[in-house]
Simulated assay, not measured.
Amino acid sequence: MAYSRAFSEESLREILLSLPVTSLCRFKCVCKNWGNLINNPSFTIDHCKKKKPPQHLIYDYDATDAPTVTLVSDKGIDEQKIFQRFGDNITNLLGSIDGVFFIERQIDNAILCTLWNPANREVRHLPAATIDFIPYDKHYRDIVFGLEPMTKDYKVLYYNALEEYAAIYSCSRDSWKIFKHNLDVDIEGNNIFERDILKSTDYLNGYYYWLVRENNKCRIVSFDFGNEVFVDMEGPPAGHEDYHWLANLMVLGDSLGILNFVDGFVHDVWIMIQPGVWNKLVTIHLTTRIKSYYDNSIILVTKSSRLVSYNVRTNKTRLFEFRHHGLHYCPEIGGCAVYYYKESLVTIKRQGNSELHLNHCMTRATY
């Protein structure tokens, strides 16, 4: 081929790694060698790891004729796309993890679960479980989404703290497994099991995290997607009796963090330096509504309906050019949710009757 005289295979690989997924889907058809290179599992992993400018996916829950999904950066709108319509009954959208989102919908009395990769437009509908899923209640029931890092197996967990049993779906098994959980939340007492209404993903390195408030204390409950068990750990120290917890979890690089409202515009940022051991990182002042978290940053919405990113470690801000009136409203009432997004070649399509290997190949999606 002509390209082989101009580029070495290593140079060609580096060039392709810098391209978006839509271009790679087209370039797979250029020749067999290009297709094999792009379909290689190591290419999929390296493409996901490649450092790219941060993007955010804005999902408009109230969209009708307008695009449902807008991809934005701090420089403005990157792309507007009309993806497959999932209807107006989405109760939960989580992600992204390696570019894949989880969608929960409630239709009549049925709870439907779907995985979705916006980059290659793949959709995978999960089979029904043998356990009944009750509608959303933030105090004791949730469906969450995570990845087992060693096997690259996406999993979905359903739990109900009032019941003894939970259910977990594995893409590699393509089925739900019912198990007896050890989740300890006293619903009748003063415990409040907090679910993140901002729709940001409290997933980190194989674990999903929740904050449990107990009177004037808080603790952390996590789910280990590898061993498929719940794990309990201590939250930050209670401090003096006037210090109250009204907090959200956030991700600070590769560490778990807590953003706690103190008074007025004042918030404390706590960071977990090892399981159950916490330090107060910084005290900050936030004067606008919080929309999401990513890396070391908080995404806020201004009075003029623009997004701004504030890095709690560097104290730097970045103003986005994107404006949308729905950013001022919660997804529950038809507003917009903001998700940190890094597109990927990961495939979620079923591979016939064989076991699914999510990072082993990428086939073009068709609706």
Rank of each mutant, 00 (worst) to 15 (best):
F261D: 15
H328L: 13
L286W: 05
P236F: 00
R85Y: 10
E10W: 03
G99I: 02
I187Q: 11
H47C: 10
H125V: 13
H181S: 04
A2T: 09
Q80I: 10
I220D: 03
N216R: 14
V269R: 01
T366K: 10
F102D: 00
I333V: 12
N216D: 15
M150C: 12
G146R: 03
A110E: 14
C171R: 03
A129M: 07
T91N: 06
K180M: 15
I187P: 01
Y339D: 00
K81P: 04
H47T: 01
P54N: 13
C29S: 11
D88Y: 11
Y208E: 02
L249R: 03
D137S: 02
D78H: 04
L356A: 14
A2M: 12
E355G: 12
F86K: 00
I333R: 03
K52T: 11
R13T: 11
E79G: 05
V144Y: 06
E214Y: 05
N205H: 13
E14P: 03
I107Y: 13
N279Q: 15
I271M: 15
K52A: 08
V30C: 09
G253D: 11
S309G: 12
I90P: 00
L319Q: 10
I197N: 09
N248L: 11
S354V: 11
N191L: 06
D74R: 12
L112C: 10
M250F: 04
Y136S: 07
A247Y: 05
N353R: 03
L71F: 15
K138Q: 07
G239F: 14
T287N: 04
S96K: 01
Y243M: 12
T151F: 07
H244L: 13
V282G: 00
G189Y: 05
N89H: 15
E355D: 09
Y59R: 14
G253E: 01
I134M: 09
L115A: 00
K152L: 05
W210E: 11
P20R: 05
E332H: 13
G235L: 05
K49Q: 02
E234D: 12
T70V: 12
V30I: 15
A337L: 02
W116G: 00
C29Q: 11
